[in-house]
Nucleic acid binder design. Structure first.
Length: 397
RNA sequence: GCUGGAAUCGUCUAGUGGCAAUGACAAGAGACUGUAAAUCUCUCGCCUUCGGGCUUCGUAGGUUCGAGUCCUACUUCCAGCA
């Protein structure tokens, strides 16, 4: 079982430490989105320096390229990417939602590769096998995001997610017992634990170290479905929970309250895909989420939309041509400590690669440090003040 | 000096008698939430009550119902010949 220590609680929110085989995550924490085993435009050194504690990669993308066996051969995601810290993988379930021409059945999902058009299938079992080969510390169960706001569609997707969760749990156990073959259940070699029980522990290979599974709560914007899904997930033998299928901050806090009151307190909760807007992070932490990931900060960085305490600015705008102030006062990221808005503006207007690098450093640092400060504010009982001060300034326009 | 060719929105360009006139770039702005995103969208002669109105293709004339497009002259540039 994944070890999770809670240091302090206040209502639903909490401060804790997730102890992964690759290191601790002090929560609440923002996890970098490293879809293809890289945070776009950033090196892992830059990620470490800007304060990131963990990264999240995507199973679908890594299956396509470079292939999960190659990552296994390389020694697992952390070693392959030179991250060397805690890692998550998303199951590939999100691609059901985001890719065109996806065929969904009870068995699983058929995609067409967006690279070469080849048909390829993902099932709960295959997702688990792939995630074990990738070797992240924490895996997400293969879930179904409904591509619809409709209640009936949401309900179907939720039930399918639950059915798939059972299969994920089973396959995860099988794989945890040392069977990394893709053969049918029951064809496993002796379980890993028996090897560990006698004599000196074997040299751990990346796939021999423990890996952990989060169930994913679905249910869309419907609180009754969310409650139902949370109960179902809570009843399973999993290490933590992902909360998925959230797309706007609107109604999110209420939904998280419903879900996190039901989920067991002693297991970590990851809010999937939210964190582009600072309010997501405050609402998420306040309502009991421990980790976050979001592609927004780095994507917006590449597109020139940069965080400041006074809201996002588009650094490409003409008004920054002669603005020789740092991007953000009192920011200790490499970008703000060394460069001006005018310089960033110039780099973006001339389409220099460095524009995206510096912007990504800043935006990623911004969200990481906002969540770090949320952590400190919970510890010092100043969360409410921090939240209201931060948000009123950020969204004041 | 002669002979040919060319001149279109900031730049390059499409246009060979019928719509303020093509495309690219530049410029201006917007979007982005478990990344098919180094992407996408909008504006880009002036005015507009969004119906439309007005002024534009080097300059000045002309032919024509109608001219960026055909004719004449001029200006400038390019090439070749002297």
């Amino acid at each position: 079982m994944l070890k999770f220590d809670i240091e302090k609680k206040n209502g639903l929110m909490r401060v804790g430490v997730i102890h992964t085989p690759h290191g601790d995550i002090h929560t609440p924490a923002f996890v970098g989105a490293a879809t293809r085993a890289t945070v776009k435009a950033l090196t892992m050194k830059e990620m470490r320096e800007l304060g990131s504690q963990a990264i999240l990669a995507n199973t679908y993308h890594l299956i396509l390229r470079p292939g999960v066996d190659l990552i296994k051969e390389a020694g697992g995601l952390a070693k392959f990417s030179s991250w060397h810290g805690p890692t998550f993988t998303d199951s590939g379930g999100f691609q059901i939602f985001s890719l065109p021409d996806v065929k969904i059945t009870e068995e699983g999902v058929k995609f067409k590769s967006h690279i070469d058009g080849a048909t390829f299938e993902l099932t709960p079992e295959k997702s688990m096998q792939a995630q074990w080969a990738i070797g992240a510390d924490i895996h997400m169960a293969f879930d179904h995001l409904a591509n619809s706001e409709n209640y009936d569609d949401m309900e179907i997707a939720m039930h399918r997610t639950h059915a798939w969760l059972d299969r994920c749990v089973e396959e995860h156990k099988r794989l945890a017992n040392g069977c990394l073959s893709t053969g049918p259940a029951g064809s496993c070699p002796p379980p890993l634990h028996s090897k560990l029980s006698g004599g000196p522990p074997p040299e751990p290979s990346p796939v021999d170290v423990p890996q952990y599974l989060y169930a994913v709560v679905q249910g869309g914007t419907f609180l009754d479905l969310r409650a139902q899904s949370a109960k179902y997930c809570a009843s399973k033998d999993v290490d933590g929970f992902g909360i998925g299928g959230v797309f706007t901050a609107e109604g999110m806090a209420e939904m998280l309250k419903t879900v996190n009151r039901i989920l067991p307190e002693n297991k970590p909760r990851h809010l999937l895909g939210m964190g582009q807007e600072p309010i997501d992070l405050f609402d998420g932490a306040e309502n009991g989420c421990d980790t976050f990931d979001c592609v927004g900060p780095t994507r917006m960085a590449r597109n020139g939309s940069l965080y400041t305490y006074d809201g996002r600015i588009n650094i490409k705008n003409a008004k920054y041509t002669h603005d020789f102030r740092p991007l953000m006062e009192d920011c200790d990221c490499e970008c703000c400590k060394n460069y001006t808005r005018a310089y960033l503006h110039h780099l973006f207007k001339t389409d220099e690669i460095t524009a995206k690098v510096l912007a990504s450093i800043h935006n990623e640092h911004f969200v990481v440090s906002v969540v770090d400060k949320i952590r400190e504010s919970i510890l010092s009982d100043t969360f409410s003040d921090y939240k209201s001060t931060f948000l009123s300034r950020y969204y004041h326009k």
